[in-house]
Nucleic acid binder design. Structure first.
Lengths: 194, 194
DNA sequence: ATGCGTAAACCGTCCAGACGGTCTGGATCA
DNA sequence: TGATCCAGACCGTCTGGACGGTTTACGCAT
């Protein structure tokens, strides 16, 4: 094998995420990552020669996962107006069990980036730019897709930042209201087309 | 004066926010705060004896401001269903110029807390708990007040985290859609009362 | 008014430890 | 034998915090 083992890289990124989430980003050090992953510091530095690289790795992986996630939500949804909005509402706003600790941990990489070097969130920003592209062109009246998806993401941020607990009831109530908004918008689109 | 000068404390907190926002939370050190505020390190330590205290001070101040903000938005709004929702929509979703760098900086304190010691965001969580109390009891159909306010806060998070630029057009479009949702909800409340 | 005592405000230095990163050495493969 | 992988000792720097010293502000007796 001539290139660094990607499996080990993932293990190291997992360890980094765990530390950032559990102990705070300030304690995200090479030593800590090594200990958490069960390797030596030299081992970590072999794959990520600087801390910027480590954090960039975390952010890139999370950004890729987020991109894959919303694209899958889009692809699995039937065509027509509100496809992105419908897809997201269905895939992440039905079951609170999908809001796992792993997901929360993953988003910690953004905070790590913000703390260490704000420029490193760029990959995440790009993923969001792409996401917003879908949202803008979702074929709903102005602002509707933005509002519904941003409400979902807002709740997600509350949860990730631990500013609010999120339970199944919260999800159900908000989904009910958002689906109503969405249905009204879809009707008005259909009406305008007629 | 027998108690520490609160004006100087505010100056130090301002300096801390500036550093956190400009250089990243990792560079938020006593030395840096001292230099930014134009005092000595000893001077900073006189007012905040540990870093936890410094960050707690930042979070508490921001939490208090947020609390004052949404309470003012509530108080300035005529009574009736959706008072909190209407107030917030009016006060922070009409003019993009109210989304100042100072506000963004202030929220950096939450990231500082999350990075250094996650437990320190508690004052902010309490402010949000209180906010959510208003939202829950806003007298709108289930989930509507939550959805509208969370959409607003979601955009706010995008902006603070620099995941998306936010301009006047974004604000206007979303406000249009959210006001429509709100009006429909108000109508249905009025209808149910009749 | 003046001098004095005391306490708070603030400064600047010091240190132990932790940090990011370098480097050397050994193991394990091809 | 050479290249890759990884271990871990090591180094210079920076950090949080302690600490002792100095200045300022103020109450109070004279």
């Amino acid at each position: 094998m001539s290139r660094p083992n990607p499996v080990i890289k993932d293990t190291l990124l997992d360890a980094a995420e765990t530390i950032a989430a559990r102990d705070g980003v300030a304690r995200l050090t090479f030593d800590a990552v090594a200990a958490e992953a069960g390797v030596s510091k030299g081992g970590v530095l072999h794959y990520f020669t600087t801390k910027d690289q480590l954090i960039e790795g975390m952010v890139k992986r999370t950004a890729t996962r987020w991109r894959d996630y919303f694209k899958a939500a889009y692809d699995n949804e039937p065509e027509g107006p509100g496809r992105m909005t419908r897809g997201l509402l269905k895939s992440c706003f039905t079951d609170a069990q999908t809001w796992t600790e792993a997901l929360r941990r993953a988003f910690g990489s953004v905070f790590a980036a913000l703390a260490h070097n704000p420029a490193l969130i760029e990959p995440m920003r790009e993923a969001y730019t792409e996401f917003y592209h879908y949202v803008e062109q979702d074929g709903l009246p102005p602002g509707v897709a933005e509002s519904v998806t941003t409400a979902m993401d807002g709740l997600w941020f509350y949860w990730v930042l631990r500013l609010r607990p999120v339970n199944q009831g919260d999800l159900d109530r908000m989904r009910g209201a958002l689906e109503l908004t969405l249905d009204d918008a879809l009707k008005s689109v259909a009406q305008a087309a007629a």
